[in-house]
């Protein structure tokens, strides 16, 4: 197992380095170079030259990349000139909130998707399966912002049960204190995930039902229900964990949309506002942090899968 962890962690480290290369190159692909990108389009030549000198942007690219890496390692992600605040302090404030929202909507999605997928597989090709599968697919096909609109109209306007906007607290506990405001963002974020995962679970269960071990279980006298809920589901869940790792980028992407619609004070909203104002230090800082989070998340998912799947565990011992 140790060797596997080392190997997989090394792969992740390579990917993290590549991500920093991409963000570094993006910074240099900005129109007019990094200085104009950071100072804005109205900056004068002299301002730019001074800025370049002060920040080492007049050095060679490899040298600049090196100092960029060194700065990153010191936790320095640059400064937002628009917000007059360091990017890292912005992220420290915002990241936990996004994690909270994403974790809650993913949990809700999984909580519904797994039983639903299994139930669909058990009732395959019957009316209930067709109806729920179609509904899930419609959920998947609906753009999140459209769905959010419908939910707000129904649950906040027509029947004012829930607030149409997320709570604006600064701390996590203040967000949780106004939980009713989180319900619509959580549900909105959960629908796409729910649709994707219930589809996955359904087909995974069906695939597994064709395996020889299912025939063995039946030959032992195991009931059909137990075959699915115990024998098959345990196999399906191992791959689901790894899939969850692959799915992280989609989850974070969804956070941008959900947060900007409900005005939820997370990284997504920060990013969205930064994009509107061309606040590049924030944009690139967020891209870097979210990408690294994704890499670490997939690493964790792979290790978790290795821990619960005896075949992977054994093969790599």
């Amino acid at each position: 197992m140790g060797r596997f962890v080392v190997h997989r962690a090394a792969q992740a480290a390579v990917v993290v380095v590549l991500v920093t290369v991409v963000t570094f190159l993006l910074l240099h692909a900005l129109p007019g170079g990094p200085a104009r990108g950071i100072l804005g389009l109205k900056a004068t030549r002299i301002q730019i030259e001074q800025f370049d000198k002060a920040n080492g942007f007049d050095e060679s690219l490899p040298q600049q990349y090196w100092s960029y890496l060194v700065r990153l390692l010191h936790g320095n992600l640059g400064t937002s000139y628009k917000l007059n605040q360091s990017v890292s302090s912005l992220l420290v404030e915002r990241v936990p909130k996004t994690l909270l929202l994403t974790a809650m909507s993913t949990a809700v999605a999984l909580f519904v998707a797994v039983p639903l997928g299994v139930w669909q597989a058990l009732h395959r090709h019957r009316v209930g399966d067709h109806v729920t599968s179609s509904l899930a697919l419609i959920g998947y096909a609906t753009p999140t912002f459209f769905l959010a609109l419908v939910l707000v109209i129904v649950f906040a306007e027509k029947w004012p049960l829930l607030p149409p906007e997320a709570p604006q607290g600064t701390s996590i506990s203040s967000l949780l204190a106004h939980f009713s405001g989180l319900v619509l963002p959580i549900v909105t974020g959960a629908v796409t995930t729910l649709a994707a995962f219930s589809r996955y679970v359904r087909s995974s269960v069906l695939d597994n039902l064709a395996e020889d071990y299912v025939r063995t279980a039946r030959a032992k006298g195991v009931s059909e229900r137990r075959v699915v809920w115990i024998h098959v589901l345990r196999n399906s869940l191992t791959s689901l964990v790894a899939l969850l790792g692959y799915y992280l980028p989609v989850l974070f992407g969804g956070a941008v949309v959900v947060e900007s619609i409900y005005n939820y004070p997370g990284v997504g909203l920060l990013f969205w506002n930064a994009a509107q104002q061309s606040d590049y230090p924030v944009l690139l800082g967020v891209v870097l942090v979210i990408s690294v989070a994704t890499v670490v998340g997939s690493l964790a998912a792979d290790l978790a899968q290795a821990a619960i799947d005896p075949r992977v565990r054994g093969a790599l011992r």
Binding site: E211, D212, Y213, R215, T216, A217, R218, A219, K220, G221, V222, S223, H231, R234, N235, T238, D309, P310, R311
Partner: peptide, 25 residues
């Protein structure tokens, strides 16, 4: 039938790697 399978009739299949459930001891 279920009460008979595995108790009064036992069955052994061809490929034991695939016939055993890989994730249970």
């Amino acid at each position: 039938i279920r009460s008979i399978r595995g108790s009064r009739i036992g069955m052994v299949f061809q490929d034991p790697m695939r016939a055993l459930n890989p994730v249970f001891t």
